[in-house]
């Protein structure tokens, strides 16, 4: 009985192939397509949109983005401000530009963790089976995170103003400072993207990212002036790209004067970091099995 149904089914399916065999180019003229230089950008932006929709669906992520900078401001200004600068208000003016930098650098560590979690899910395999550049899923994740930094930056400025921080310069300088922070964070993220793509476990990514993040943010002139530190530490602080960024932002927001040197150093660092780690991340992602 089973035999009979089977044979009948076979007969119908055997007559089924209506389409000709698709030889190269036959029946699908658009293949192979020319590489479209805008496609990478377009696909990255589509996946940026995905990251942002995710953010909207997980409002608990905003707690991270908002509470952490507030806690840092409160802790440093009121706990250490008096001791470091003699007055909490003076210290607020000094430290707030630094906290702006620190918040965003810390947030960029999270890019690696989030990506590692994401890659372990099925949707990244689907991305890999689509005819899109391997850069797009990574670029989308990073750009999505950059948008989140904007939220953190707004919180730092908002909360800072509420407790007495005053920008001493103009709106153009503020915009320049924000742009600099975002560009640097974008570049930095790729270091953590490499970790996120290479490591299997999001927790190991978190741990390793923290190991890198601490010397970068605390071993800088964010919380104290480099002059107050011992020579060996000063040597590190002076080469640390985060110090250049902090100096530039501090100049742009509070101290006034020329930020060109530090800004250029920051941009140069950002370019180097991006040029090294973005291709490495894409390569690791491509060859990931």
């Amino acid at each position: 009985m089973t035999t009979a149904t089977r044979t009948a089914a076979d007969d119908t399916t055997k007559s089924a192939p209506k389409l000709p065999h698709p030889g190269p180019g036959i029946g699908h003229d658009e293949i192979p397509r020319r590489a479209d230089p805008f496609a990478v950008v377009r696909h990255s932006l589509t996946l940026t949109w995905r990251s942002l929709v995710k953010l909207k669906r997980q409002p608990e992520q905003f707690i991270d983005l908002t509470l952490q900078p507030i806690l840092f401001i409160v802790m440093f200004v009121y706990l250490f401000g008096g001791a470091i600068e003699g007055s909490t208000q003076d210290y607020l003016q000094f430290v707030l530009p630094g906290i702006l930098v620190q918040t965003v650098v810390f947030a960029s560590l999270g890019t690696g963790v989030g990506l590692c979690e994401d890659i372990n899910k099925g949707v990244f395999d689907r991305f890999r089976s689509l005819p899109i550049s391997r850069f797009a899923p990574l670029g989308g994740a990073v750009l999505g995170d950059v948008c989140r930094y904007v939220v953190s930056i707004a919180i730092v400025f908002g909360f800072g103003s509420a407790i007495g921080f005053r920008v001493q310069t103009g709106p153009l300088e503020v915009l320049a400072a924000i742009a600099l922070v975002l560009v640097f964070a974008f570049a930095m993220s790729w270091i953590f993207v490499v970790l996120g793509v290479t490591m299997r476990n999001p927790r190991s990514v978190q741990g390793t990212a923290m190991l890198l993040g601490f010397p970068l943010t605390f071993g800088a002139n964010i919380f104290a002036r480099a002059e107050t530190m011992p020579g060996w530490l000063q040597a590190w602080v002076d080469v640390n790209p985060v110090s250049h960024l902090t100096s530039a932002v501090r100049t742009l927001l509070v101290e006034g004067g020329s930020a060109t040197g530090d800004a250029l150093a920051t941009l140069a660092w950002a370019a180097v970091i991006f040029a090294v780690f973005a291709p490495l991340a894409v390569h690791k992602y491509k060859t990931k099995t």
Partner: peptide, 10 residues
């Protein structure tokens, strides 16, 4: 399939 699937979060 087992691996390629959809995004849970959107």
């Amino acid at each position: 399939g087992q691996y390629a699937s959809v995004d849970e979060d959107i």
